[in-house]
């Protein structure tokens, strides 16, 4: 038994180092070295922190999206939720003259409600996949934003509101502190609680989960509602950074977010993946984007790179698996022959 334990430990150690997350860390370091060699401003800490601020807003959605994709679902409506909650916040401050604090709370509430509606629709109509439901609500939510604001911009927020996106606590950007807190909470929720375990169970086998007495509908609704809420949070920080909002704000964010999660090793077929991987890959893509900006590549290049990155990061494990299977079979055959 003791021997077996030892074996297990070695195996665990091995498993620990042969993880996708380490590949991500190496990639991340590589990108940073390249960036630093391009730009002299990059290598100091405060420069790095500033770079981080440019992409952290969407990283807030990455956290709940990990839950969604582990469930085996997908939510493509997040960018529209950001737009709608941001627009409603701006309008209720500027046109309805609500206090900014109240407008901000309204922003979070709108995000949460949008997520809740997604969840309810998906649970209520089991025949509809999350893709088709969120594709439809994506159009609707942004459509409502257009109805409210037409093609106008709305800004003029109070001075203190810009603190969210631009402010510092000591020498650390405020947004980083908030993100760190959220990241810790979501990691613990996924890996250390019954809720997280249920999400993994449902992603692997929803029928067996239902038969095991898991309240699958409730959990699905909570996950989508959380995604809506965090989209609201993103709306706050993004609007603060931009200084104003438009109905087309955050267009295409869903792609970035899904790319970050999938690149982070969360399998789109559900049931597999870790929070830390998605967080690392959020930084990875963010830094990559920042670095491309440094070398003055046309901003559309990033679209191509992220698109290809998304495709290849999902494909590599597939290909690896096929190769593994093939070599194993060959080995087995070779062994048989030598017998």
């Amino acid at each position: 038994m003791a021997h077996q334990n030892n074996d297990n430990k070695i195996l665990k150690l091995k498993n620990f180092f042969f993880q996708w997350e380490w590949v991500l860390v190496l990639l991340f370091i590589a990108i940073n070295i390249i960036n630093a060699s391009i730009s002299p401003y990059y290598s100091n800490i405060s420069g790095l922190l500033d770079a981080t601020m440019t992409f952290l807003d969407k990283a807030f959605i990455v956290l709940p999206m990990v839950f969604v994709i582990i469930l085996g679902d997908i939510d493509v409506s997040v960018s529209s939720i950001v737009a709608l909650s941001s627009v409603i916040m701006a309008v209720s401050y500027n046109d309805l003259h609500l206090p900014m604090e109240l407008a901000m709370i309204l922003c979070l509430i709108v995000g949460t409600l949008c997520g809740l509606l997604n969840g309810l629709l998906i649970v209520k109509f089991k025949e509809l996949s999350a893709v088709i439901v969120t594709v439809s609500t994506q159009i609707i939510y942004r459509g409502i934003a257009y109805i409210i604001l037409k093609d106008q911009a709305s800004g003029n927020f109070p001075q203190w509101f810009s603190f969210l996106g631009w402010g510092y606590v000591g020498r650390i950007p405020f947004i980083i502190i908030v993100f760190a807190i959220c990241a810790v909470i979501f990691s613990l929720l996924l890996h250390k609680t019954t809720f997280g375990r249920y999400v993994y169970a449902m992603g692997n086998n929803i029928t067996a989960s239902r038969f095991s007495g898991i309240q699958v509908d409730k959990i699905k609704i909570i996950v989508f509602t959380l995604t809506g809420f965090m989209s609201g949070v993103t709306a706050l920080f993004l609007t603060s950074r931009m200084g104003s909002t438009r109905p087309n704000i955050a267009l295409g964010y869903e792609l970035d977010v899904i790319a970050m999660v999938v690149l982070g090793g969360v399998s789109t077929s559900g049931g597999k993946g870790k929070m830390i991987g998605a967080i690392i890959s959020a930084f990875l893509i963010g830094m990559l984007r920042y670095g491309l900006g440094l070398v003055n590549l046309p901003s559309q290049t990033i679209l191509v790179i992220i698109g290809l990155l998304l495709v290849f990061s999902v494909m590599i494990p597939n290909v690896r698996l096929t190769i593994k299977k093939a070599t194993k079979q060959n080995l087995a055959m070779a062994n048989d022959k030598s017998d």
């Binding site: 609680t193 019954t194 809720f195 375990r197 249920y198 169970a201 692997n204 086998n205 029928t207 067996a208 989960s209 038969f211 095991s212 007495g213 898991i214 049931g271």
Partner: peptide, 26 residues
């Protein structure tokens, strides 16, 4: 299809229906 999560260890499968019992406030 209905009884097990095949990709999981035996232990996690066994405790799934009574997870609340192996946890404190979640």
């Amino acid at each position: 299809k209905q009884g097990l999560i095949l990709q999981w260890e035996i232990s996690k499968n066994i405790t799934l229906p009574a997870l609340e019992r192996f946890s404190k406030r979640g």
